[in-house]
Amino acid sequence: MRHAVWIPLFDELADPRAVARLAASAEEAGWEGFFVWDQLWWQPPVSAVADPWITLTAVAVATERLRFGPMVTPVPRRRPVKLLRETTTLDVLSHGRLTLGVGLGSDRFAGEFSRSGEELDDRIRAEQLDECLQILTAGWSEETVVHRGKHYVVDSVRFEPRPVSGRIPIWCAGFPGKPKPIRRAARYDGYFPVNLTSPDQVASAVEAVSAERGSLDGFDVVIALSPTTDVRPYAEAGATWCLTDFDPESRLADVQAVVKAGPPR
């Protein structure tokens, strides 16, 4: 199992310079990944919130080996061609270390969709997510992208440069037990079951993805656990990455202490 830090970019962690220093410390301490939340705002008492993409640019420059990315970016609130340019540029900057975590997003935590005029229907956002992923994977290739879908149009455009390895790994998030996110994830590179409560949910996810793909070769099952949770039962259930998760109100000093202690052994 590989281990990563996963932090909300809130308040003291809303400073990209502080986060870049934290990422450098994580790399030095032996962590293998560094991921950040993608939120526009959050509930009180959180007030300051940083942009994940600019913050990840600072992380890319401050590190050399860490795999990093947004976990997860709510793709339906982004324009596909803009996201394509951002991801490719960040991947090139980091010499191929970007992983793209994607999902529908949710309005229930901070009202990000209802308070900014975004689409609230989960089914429509799922359609938008699937279309956007089609555009991304085509644009990362050497193809000329011709896409005329229900929600987006890209008319005969070739996007250069390409990602360093030809494409960027995609991890798809979903609530455990929901079949559609698992089927989506099986078409890409990883599955992130959010809000886990037991290793049995990981085992069920591994079984479901394996049934869809026929093989788990080159596929990641990603989990998020608090710093004090025993990761071993989850590794035995088939998880390949563990993201050490921090509370939205975490202070910088507390995160620094966990990071400097290194990943679970």
Rank of each mutant, 00 (worst) to 15 (best):
R2M: 05
E12H: 11
L13I: 02
S25P: 00
A26N: 01
E27H: 01
E28K: 13
W31C: 04
E32D: 12
W37H: 13
D38Q: 09
W41F: 13
Q43N: 05
P44N: 01
P45S: 08
A50C: 08
D51S: 08
P52H: 09
L56K: 10
T57P: 01
A58G: 09
A60D: 02
L66V: 12
G69K: 08
P76W: 11
R77G: 04
R77H: 10
R78S: 06
K82Y: 14
L90W: 01
L90V: 08
D91T: 05
G96E: 07
R97F: 04
L98H: 02
T99M: 11
L104G: 07
L104Q: 12
G105S: 07
D107S: 11
D107L: 02
G111F: 10
G111K: 12
F113D: 12
R115M: 13
R115Y: 09
G117H: 07
E118P: 00
E118T: 00
E119P: 06
R125K: 10
I135G: 02
G139R: 00
G149R: 07
K150M: 03
V154S: 10
D155L: 03
R158Y: 00
P161N: 10
S165V: 05
S165Y: 13
S165D: 12
I168Q: 10
C172V: 15
G174N: 07
G174E: 04
P179H: 09
A186Y: 02
Y191A: 10
F192D: 05
F192S: 03
P193F: 05
Q201H: 11
E207P: 00
A208K: 06
A211Y: 00
G214H: 14
S215E: 13
G218K: 02
V221Y: 03
I223E: 11
A224V: 03
D230R: 11
P233C: 14
Y234C: 12
G238Q: 09
T240L: 02
W241H: 13
C242G: 02
L243H: 15
T244R: 13
T244Q: 11
D245V: 07
F246L: 10
P248W: 08
D254K: 11
V258I: 14
K260G: 04
P263I: 04
